[in-house]
Design a protein around this nucleic acid. Sequence first.
DNA 1: TCACTTTATGTAACCGGTTACACAAAGTAT
DNA 2: ATACTTTGTGTAACCGGTTACATAAAGTGA
Lengths: 329, 329
Amino acid sequence: MATIRDVAKRAGVSVATVSRVLNQNGYVNEETEKRVRRAMKELNYKPSEVARALFKKTSKTVGLIVPDITNPFFPELVRAVEDVMNIYDYTVILCNSDEKAEKEREYIEVLKQKYVDGVILTTNQLTPDEVDEWDVPIVVLDRPFNEKYPSVVVDNYRGARLATRHLYDMGCRRIAHIQGPMYVVNAVERFRGYQDEMMELGIWEQRLVIQGNYQLKQAKEAVMAALAQQEIDGIFAGNDAMAVGALKAVQQCGLRVPDDIAIIGYDGIPLTEMTTPELSTVSQPIYDMGAIAARILIKQIEGKPLEKLHYQLPVQLIVRQSTSRREQM
Amino acid sequence: MATIRDVAKRAGVSVATVSRVLNQNGYVNEETEKRVRRAMKELNYKPSEVARALFKKTSKTVGLIVPDITNPFFPELVRAVEDVMNIYDYTVILCNSDEKAEKEREYIEVLKQKYVDGVILTTNQLTPDEVDEWDVPIVVLDRPFNEKYPSVVVDNYRGARLATRHLYDMGCRRIAHIQGPMYVVNAVERFRGYQDEMMELGIWEQRLVIQGNYQLKQAKEAVMAALAQQEIDGIFAGNDAMAVGALKAVQQCGLRVPDDIAIIGYDGIPLTEMTTPELSTVSQPIYDMGAIAARILIKQIEGKPLEKLHYQLPVQLIVRQSTSRREQM
DNA sequence: TCACTTTATGTAACCGGTTACACAAAGTAT
DNA sequence: ATACTTTGTGTAACCGGTTACATAAAGTGA
């Protein structure tokens, strides 16, 4: 690999001049620049990002910490971040934290050692105090965390109310909710939305709440158990994977969706269009969330002012077959 | 951030000694080492990976180029690579190539500038000649590419024969194949397997081949069109997404799966368990593929000998409801 | 013509590690 | 006692960029 000194020698100039050509700053004679560019081309010279990073303490690299890329909500988010970063010549280091504080800590440490310019966090088990010490630009994505840090989230509470209300409008009166894990803020918000809406409708009952962990399988079993014990005519699942679990449970019990039990999920992952019947869901603008988070991070890195610190994107109720009693059959 | 010189000063030694402690090489007196370690702890010193990378020309970072993380086949693969790399203290830069040669080239260029230690390629539109010039360790994953480079693939040909034969055994005689894009080697192999098996069974017919592009939607439409024109009693889809498309098309035509038409996919992504009926498929050991590729890459990077250059992992026929005529109903 | 600005380029220090080499003290074999 | 090896540590060059500072020629205004 050719270095800047090789280029300098070949062009008959000093390394400073080559550097000026590279960075387009300082004064460089037109003729000289041409000679330098020719030398660069002839040697197929590409500057070392590492040498640059060492001096500038910035690496054109960002970290992206997700709980688990295998969770179908995240690929689209990751893709969006990657796309935007790519446009601005940043590179993305992907980290799976499994929601473990220890893994998050380790990753942050490593990322800092590699001089990443910023980090997008879609998971967080750490305290704000701990995060304060990182002195790296941070954007919080999907999970509300702390006032201080820029964030991109959706209105989980409102979405949950929308979903619950929709089931009610479809004629459901005994609406169960499969709750996500309570250590995930979003799951709590969705539960709150469900609870408030149910209370307002005067049909709230504690036992309609089913404990889930965001996984299909566990949700399926939990719903099977619930169906055996009580009457239910609608299910609002805390995410789409659990909605599929519910769907399977209901079908396995010989009941029909949506005729006997209507089901609605949350997230709007592609999967919801693949089931039979197709699943209604509260759709989040996943790609946009990732893209906006990436843009905000870049602004922060480049020291530009943010118009807004906290972005809350709208959710959208998507009605499909699993809650459409009229149109279907 | 404290530097090695700060540590040296505080411990009252030279930077060389600190470096020796860090890397556990050379002679260091026990007492001295203790002092150095104390100083490191007190200053919360973490060595700069960037400075190291500059000198050593190695960065404890690898590149992973996939066509599109949004394609449900890849998250598990990516996760496996990340998990293994994490164990060995490597970090993973994720790149989406969209199967475009130009993007692949750009990424490789950037990765080299960042001194990545190796690259895992799950896509490739480039010629071996071009790849030869990279002088970075490469492992080819999922897509067979060139004899020279270590690879991890599955036997697509055999899997396709298995699937076709399975449909035949289930009583299907007019077995259609939804073909993936012909610029993807795997799709060609799967087609070949289908074709050879059909010929051997004496039921091959050119018009049973349906052109797909690995996408659900397009496959659904193609199958709708095919169903209108000819009789079909079994469908072997080139991947699981297209199998779901086929499933939807068949159901939309008012036909039953598997009774009227049996369907089998390829890949074994989680999605296949979420449909109703659940999809039979030829399952690839996705996680293992990623994990093995990662291990091979690390061996190469660390200059250890590979026991084997090419790994071909077994596929497994998974029979579910979409091809089970007896058990069901 | 003189002082000052603009243009153009080079020299060398610096970023934060690693390591070749030098040097000295202590241990060991003869 | 001498020669040689082992242990322990420091100095300084190096990796490949960037940039502060120095220098000088050319241009500009009074």
